[in-house]
Amino acid sequence: MMDEENLKQIARLAKIELKEEEVKEFSPQIRSILALFDEIDEVETEDVKPTFHVFGLKNVFREDAASPSLAGEDAIKNAPKKERGYIKGPKIM
């Protein structure tokens, strides 16, 4: 069930910073959303195939042909930090 620890873990995975009072505020809200799913869980789905995709499309492909790419300067235009054509990012180990 959604306790405060779960919520903090999810926020961490999503890289969202939550203040302690926000954790207190959101926990019951998310609990109530999850309660809704508990209700859905009660529907009998024994004979229903799982749905992975809602449009009923399948096998949409493109042929293997190269098309022009963005110019280098356009590709990195929005990056806050760059160096010699590279985007500069944090070091993560």
């Binding site: 160096e83 590279y86 985007i87 990012g89 944090p90 070091k91």
Partner: peptide, 11 residues
């Protein structure tokens, strides 16, 4: 990787 302070990324 141990000594560098940032990473350079080529997409």
């Amino acid at each position: 990787i141990q000594y560098s302070r940032h990473s350079l990324i080529d997409y």
